[in-house]
């Protein structure tokens, strides 16, 4: 019966969610410093109130073509033990409270790079919200990405 709060956002019209406790803040930003030779999923670095934050392109993590960083992009800042990292997403959604009984493990038909990042699906009214595994979502050194780069 335990309800949990999720911060939601969209990538390619798909709704994703992260445990709200892991989300530091959400903001739009537009000046990213590219990091040559870094994994492709690293969109760049930016200055968040004096802290240098790495922006991870969630599109690349999900196996999609990388985002054009010329204009502003939405950042979901995720706090981990080591650092604060930004996930670049298309659109920010609401914070919603969900019960565990609408949760299901990821469908078997879900394959490809995104399979690793998703812990399961929440059945909302009319659409699905995929819950992301924070650690994997921000891991830019995971094997499938290296394969992709090669």
């Amino acid at each position: 019966m335990s309800g949990r709060q999720y911060a939601t956002f969209e990538v390619e019209d798909q709704l994703f969610g992260l445990d709200v406790a892991q989300v530091q803040e959400v903001l739009s930003f537009h000046e990213y410093t590219p990091v040559p030779l870094a994994p492709r999923a690293v969109g760049g670095l930016f200055n968040l109130r004096g802290q240098v934050i790495a922006a991870v392109d969630l599109r690349v993590q999900l196996g999609l073509p990388s985002r054009d960083l010329e204009g502003p992009a939405m950042n979901v800042i995720v706090r981990t033990d080591e650092e604060s990292v930004s996930l670049l997403v298309d659109k920010i959604g609401e914070v919603i409270e969900l019960d565990d009984d609408v949760f299901e493990p990821p469908p078997d038909t879900l394959t490809g790079p995104s399979r690793d990042l998703i812990t399961g699906a929440f059945k909302l009214d009319g659409r699905l919200m995929l819950a992301l595994d924070t650690v994997r979502a921000i891991d830019t050194a995971s094997p499938h990405l290296i394969e992709e780069r090669a």
Binding site: E31, T33, V35, P36, L37, A38, P39, V42, G44, L45, F46, N47, G50, Q51, V52, A54, E82, E83, T140, A141
Partner: peptide, 27 residues
């Protein structure tokens, strides 16, 4: 000087990052 996280250590070209006078990050 701002240290870089493990994410960028393997690249082996950068000693860190910094914030320049105009607020942008430089390697």
């Amino acid at each position: 000087v701002k240290p870089l996280t493990a994410r960028f250590k393997d690249i082996g070209v950068y000693a860190g990052a910094c914030i320049l006078g105009d607020g942008r990050v430089a390697l």
